[in-house]
Nucleic acid binder design. Structure first.
Lengths: 140, 140
DNA sequence: GGTAATTCTATTATTATAGTAGACAATAGA
DNA sequence: TCTATTGTCTACTATAATAATAGAATTACC
């Protein structure tokens, strides 16, 4: 499961994508339209800013905006940044691989091979869509 | 991420699949070959038994065995039983749907639509492989 | 200087997770 | 029938992650 925080982060970024090119968006705007607790959103946006995904300006008329064009930010990027990995097990992460606790050696672990496949399918979906695109309804 | 407990459950079931048709497998066998803390495994196997996935016998020469043929247990089934859902958000579960806390209405939530697609791809992989099959190395 | 905004450091409450303890119940075989 | 062996159940505990808040500090425009 994605954490509540990751879900908030994604919706906040979607909101900023909608306002892209229109100057700084104040935090309270995002919090209200996206139903995110304002104080918690400060934590989230500060992190996204430290990670270089959003730029900020303090003071009057300040706020947040995307540091990159929406088309250059994929959902896969966001999940990797906020959650660390797309995978369902530590051993199945391609960018943040870790060996699972109390597991067999990976070469013998059948779960490992399966989780790699799930990760790759997830990546195919999430890396294939950017913040610029409306999310298609379904695959056929 | 799958919890440690879910990972243990899957490996335990794989072990039972390997011994299918050969009588009860004692818990300590599973614990040792799969590197699972024995006491914790009792909790896990008791749950799997209550859910009808394994049958058990107590007493001498007792143990655990799969209640169904390995080919009739898919990885999707196991994850749904132990974790509740294949989805990455509560709203994207098809069998255990819940609305996400502090979210927009689902019809307006772009994340919802995206998570449904990820769930469906995950299901395609996990429902397509049963405990009877060796896990293929990769898709091309 | 005042106001509106972000930023930073700490703290808290709640929940989930991982694992353990120990008494109890059943079974097969000697 | 005794006993060793094996699973079952209830309860408990420790740790970590999560979600969220508090409040002071900083910045920038007017």
């Amino acid at each position: 499961m994605l954490s509540q925080k990751t879900r908030y982060a994604i919706r906040a970024l979607q909101h900023l994508a909608d306002q892209y090119g229109q100057g700084p968006v104040p935090l309270t705007d995002i919090a209200e339209t996206q139903k995110i607790p304002a104080k918690f959103l400060t934590v989230i946006l500060s992190e996204l800013s430290r990670e270089g995904l959003v730029d900020t300006q303090r003071g009057r008329d300040g706020g947040y905006w995307l540091a990159l064009s929406p088309i250059d930010i994929s959902y896969g990027d966001i999940v990797r940044l906020t959650r660390g990995s797309l995978a369902l097990t530590p051993c199945a992460s391609r960018f943040a691989h870790e060996t699972c606790a109390n597991c067999l050696p990976e070469s013998e672990c059948r779960l490992h091979r399966l989780m790699l496949r799930v990760r790759d399918e997830t990546a195919r979906v999430l890396d294939g869509i950017s913040l610029a695109e409306p999310v298609p309804l379904d695959v056929e």
